[in-house]
Design a protein around this nucleic acid. Sequence first.
DNA 1: CGTAGTCTTGAACCGCGTCAAGCTTGGTGG
DNA 2: CCACCAAGCTTGACGCGGTTCAAGACTACG
Lengths: 259, 259
Amino acid sequence: MTTREIALTQINQKSTSQDGGERCGDCPIRYRAVCAHCETDELALLEDMKFYRAFEPGQPIVWEGERMDFVGSVVSGVASLTQTLEDGRTQMVGLLLPSDFLGRPSRDIAPYNAIAATKVVFCCFRRKPFEQMMRTTPHVAHRLLEMTLDELDAAREWMLLLGRKTAREKIASFITIIARREAALQKRNPGGRMQIELPLTREAMADYLGLTLETVSRQISALKREGVIELVGKRAIILPDFARLVEESGDDSDGGYLS
Amino acid sequence: MTTREIALTQINQKSTSQDGGERCGDCPIRYRAVCAHCETDELALLEDMKFYRAFEPGQPIVWEGERMDFVGSVVSGVASLTQTLEDGRTQMVGLLLPSDFLGRPSRDIAPYNAIAATKVVFCCFRRKPFEQMMRTTPHVAHRLLEMTLDELDAAREWMLLLGRKTAREKIASFITIIARREAALQKRNPGGRMQIELPLTREAMADYLGLTLETVSRQISALKREGVIELVGKRAIILPDFARLVEESGDDSDGGYLS
DNA sequence: CGTAGTCTTGAACCGCGTCAAGCTTGGTGG
DNA sequence: CCACCAAGCTTGACGCGGTTCAAGACTACG
């Protein structure tokens, strides 16, 4: 069984929770999602307005310009937000990880495409009651503000990457971002070398980074050739020297996420 | 007197309001800034915690990593948010226009440089009382959420520009953005051809667009040569055919801002 | 075993960056 | 009033990084 299959299996295990009656108290993103600050009684309100949906890799969650009668959170898996020009050029503008929020209260037309990159379990809140709750209880609105400000910061880092980094720096930055996220979630595997799963195809990475898929492939090969990374299959990467990778990313420091 | 000088004079007139005791009720951004939804009594609270500061073109408002003991709104003028790599490569990540908000409640270290691009009058709120108000009254927090979501949308359009547009399309897009903003503010000059002021130097435009200043200059010259725009001095532009300009920008529609 | 999706690699091209020179404009001081 | 200077801008020549086009390899799956 490949590491990729293992990852998909893990997602499957989580997605068995999708048949409606799941308790928020047991939710894996209970303290990181939009509901993070909610009290027990507020959770009960949310449970009344929520339902789960599962999406397969490549499947659209919403289409640009489409009406969206729900908002909600990614429970497991990865989804991408993309914008396109008429002639088909595509740029990813958001990467939704577990606990990230999709949809804007008080606007029902989606401004970009949302597409499942892996299997995704999505916790939907019906729009109307959710908007009502935004008005009446401060905890949800406050948490959503925090999360939106964080996303704005991330978008601005991303703009620096798109506007000013070289192809090599973009690839190294992307791997660094994924590595930090996985390190933050998973219990440290002690001693063993850091290994990560790429949740995106080469093409999706290209759309993330403002490159072509050929350039992505070439730069990954170059980093491998020079020993900065090692490949395990196509989608898993071992990082023998994280500091070296960060150097290649062009950023000034490792942000303190990893010793 | 050049159009640029006229613009600066207008800013000067506004900035005479900076000596502290200005009433919020008379503020030019009263219904667009973070205070937009506030009632009279809430305005009184805000007046107690506010003070004005003026900045000259090129002057820093805050420096990345610096402590910021205030948050606030641009009253008049234009400021830029920029991020830089160690080797000096610079990317603009935000363009602050009148009514835009600067600073994040509950974080006192600025994550990017904010620099005045023109003369700027800035309405500062002392951090502590402002944060207190965020907690106690819903109107300010709610408005800030709206504004942050709008900024996030703008940042994502910007990412599409940075990642996927050509130099020519970037320039055309930038002029379009500025033109729409000026059209939204100023009373329609009836009949006369549309004329706009660029609030940025060629270098600042380059930092906005992820280009070099030479490329910016060349593309502006090319658009002029082909009759898409006309130059009035270096900083003012006449748009004889707005639809043509929008075509050059690569966007699929004019967004309905202008007939 | 064949086929489709994904990825890699090569060769040629070109858009934009780099380097460099010169222009325009406004301000300063003789 | 003119000489000088600095800041901002324009233009040209050249080269490189990344795109484009094309061919082929690897893997999963029927």
